[in-house]
Simulated assay, not measured.
Amino acid sequence: MTTLYGVLAVFDTPEAVTKAAVYLRESGFRRFEAYTPYPVEPLNRIVHPGPKRFLPLLMFAVAILGAGYGYFVQYWDEVLNYPLNVGGRPHNSWPAFTVSAFEFMLLVTMAAGLFGMLAASSLPKLYHPLFQSRFFARASRDRFILCVKASDPIFDPKEVEEAFGQLGAEHIEEVRT
């Protein structure tokens, strides 16, 4: 048995899809997505309001931990595990440890950024219920699509379809998984 994923509406202009997104946001909907052939700047702020803090905080935390771990590995090796006096220098030579600790910090920060971005974007996603819609392929060419997800707390398919009809949608379709 298939379950309802959401209601999809196709619009022909960026102004129409932006107007529909504003209406949805003001009506209390929180789980809806927009698919457009090119970036529509006001649409991004409407669909995903508020600052995005997950990825920068993740990368900052990993950078601090990576720098500390990069320094600790050298400290452990030179001071605790195998103290070898070379040239009369101290065992804990922080200037010598700084460069490689910084490089390790960059390595783990970039890896955390990549994997954090993939996780936040739910990628790689090889299948999506919207791929079943006959109108979705035009979202990458010349149409603007809004999809209200059935997981939204105030989702009612008939109410959403009526609202899309009043907002001037070209096509309205229920999407099933």
Rank of each mutant, 00 (worst) to 15 (best):
P56C: 11
H48A: 00
E159D: 11
R134Y: 09
D142K: 01
N81R: 13
L55N: 02
W94F: 13
F60K: 07
C147R: 05
L55E: 02
G116A: 10
D156L: 07
V160F: 11
V99G: 15
F60H: 09
P90L: 12
V99Q: 15
F54A: 02
P56G: 13
K52V: 01
Q166M: 08
M59P: 04
L84G: 06
L57A: 12
F54E: 01
K52L: 01
F72V: 03
R143I: 11
L123S: 07
L118M: 14
L167E: 04
P49D: 01
A63H: 11
T177C: 09
Y127R: 10
S93W: 06
L8Q: 11
R30A: 09
D12M: 12
P14H: 02
V73H: 12
K125W: 08
D152C: 06
M105R: 03
P42I: 00
V7L: 06
P14R: 03
S121A: 13
V40G: 09
A101W: 08
R138C: 04
F54Y: 04
T36A: 05
E33W: 02
E159F: 07
E41I: 05
P49M: 00
E161P: 04
Y69G: 07
T3E: 15
L55K: 01
T2L: 10
R141W: 12
L58S: 12
F60Y: 09
V62W: 03
V47W: 00
L146E: 02
V73N: 08
A139T: 05
S122H: 04
K52G: 00
P95S: 04
D156K: 07
E103I: 08
A137Q: 14
S27E: 13
V175F: 13
G66V: 09
L84R: 13
T36F: 05
P153C: 10
L106A: 13
Y71M: 12
G28L: 06
P124V: 04
A63V: 08
P56V: 09
A101G: 04
V62A: 10
I64T: 15
S122K: 03
N81Q: 09
C147N: 11
M117R: 05
A169H: 01
Y23P: 03
P39W: 01
F164A: 03
L114S: 15
H91T: 09
V40S: 08
L130M: 13
R134E: 12
M117P: 04
I154M: 15
Q132F: 13
Q132H: 13
T3C: 11
G50Y: 00
L4G: 01
E170V: 06
V108H: 07
L107F: 06
T109M: 09
G70N: 06
